Computed example of a mutant assay.
Amino acid sequence: MSSPFIGRARSTATALAITLALAALGGCASYDVTSPKDARDNAKSGDAKNGEASGTVDCRKAKCVALTFDGGPSEPTPHLLDVLKQKHVHATFFLQGRGHVAKYPGTVRRMAAEGHEVADHTWTHKVLTDLDPAEIRQELSSVQDSIAKITGHRPDLMRPPEGRTDEKVSKVCRELGLAQILWSVTAKDYQTNDTALITKRVLDQTRPDGIILLHDRYPGTIPAVPGIINTLRSRGYTLVTVSQLLAPAAPEPGMVYRP
């Protein structure tokens, strides 16, 4: 079995080498994964984007959790943006291309204008580990290109559908300048429209330095967001974007960030 990136210099010094057995192929592969806390703790001077990522929040001192939404934008997303604006919260949106970014460019433009972080969730939501490198590149670069045309900024964060990644996906992400963001909290809101249950699942799972995964297109989710924000704040949490959670470290292309 190959040694997982021994001797390779990494900007995140404590990145863990994860070795995955690929039984179907009879071989092995590896990719780098680190936690937001480890990334922060081992950030080098000058890693942050001139303070852009950290803003006024220092998650080395504050009790932070990142709020993220997958699979939009969709018809209900403007209402979610209204809620976040009212609550003075910025979130990270991992956007899907076909039927979403391509259909609602005005919503994407509004996200960026209101200070939210706009990121990549592939063009058609295919499981990337099932694709060849050229197909992975197309799934990711198409969304990057579309978002850049709308907002003027090319995303540097992505979330792999179903959280499934491997060495092949990581290599393409490095080439495209994309860091991979997983999560620690899921309400499984794709399975239920019960707002109370969604709220309970999020609150039960949230811990400091976590990343919350929700989907803005499901009916039970947006009504849960105000209560989630209020309760987390009452527990001492500051809700942030993914880049704010990582700062002063800058997201490293190809790296998998997992709380």
Score class of each variant (00 low, 15 high):
Glu175Gln: 13
Pro161Trp: 11
Pro259Trp: 04
Thr165Ala: 13
Leu176Ile: 02
Lys37Met: 09
Trp123Cys: 02
Val202Gly: 07
Gln86Val: 14
Pro73Tyr: 01
Leu20Asn: 00
Arg109Phe: 09
Gly7Ser: 02
Leu157Arg: 14
Ser3Val: 01
Val118Trp: 02
Thr92Leu: 05
Thr68Asp: 00
Thr19Ile: 10
Glu114Cys: 03
Gly55Asp: 04
Pro248Gln: 08
Val202Thr: 10
Pro226His: 12
Thr68Pro: 03
Ala21Trp: 13
Thr195Phe: 03
Leu203Gly: 07
Ser184Cys: 00
Met158Cys: 15
Ile181Met: 03
Cys28Ile: 08
Thr77Ala: 03
Ala247Asp: 01
Asp156Gly: 15
Arg258Pro: 03
Val118Thr: 03
Pro219Asn: 05
Ala113Ile: 01
Val242Ala: 03
Ala119Arg: 05
Glu139Phe: 11
Lys103Gly: 13
Thr151Met: 05
Gln205Asp: 06
Lys168Glu: 15
Thr107Tyr: 11
Arg10Asp: 06
Gly177Asn: 07
Pro223Tyr: 06
Ser170Gly: 05
Val256Asp: 01
Arg110Ala: 09
Pro208Asp: 01
Tyr31Arg: 02
Arg159Ala: 11
Thr206His: 05
Asp82Gly: 09
Ala187Thr: 06
Asn50Gly: 12
Leu182His: 13
Gln96Ala: 15
Arg207Phe: 02
Asp156Arg: 15
Asp194Gly: 03
Ala224Pro: 10
Leu128His: 07
Tyr237Asn: 08
Gln191Val: 14
Thr129Gly: 04
Tyr237Trp: 08
Cys64Ala: 06
Leu232Pro: 07
Trp183Gln: 05
Gly210Trp: 05
Lys168Arg: 15
Ser74Pro: 06
Met158Asn: 14
Ser142His: 12
Leu239Arg: 07
Leu95Gly: 09
Thr68Tyr: 02
Glu117Pro: 11
Tyr218Gly: 10
Ala53Cys: 15
Gly55Tyr: 10
His90Glu: 13
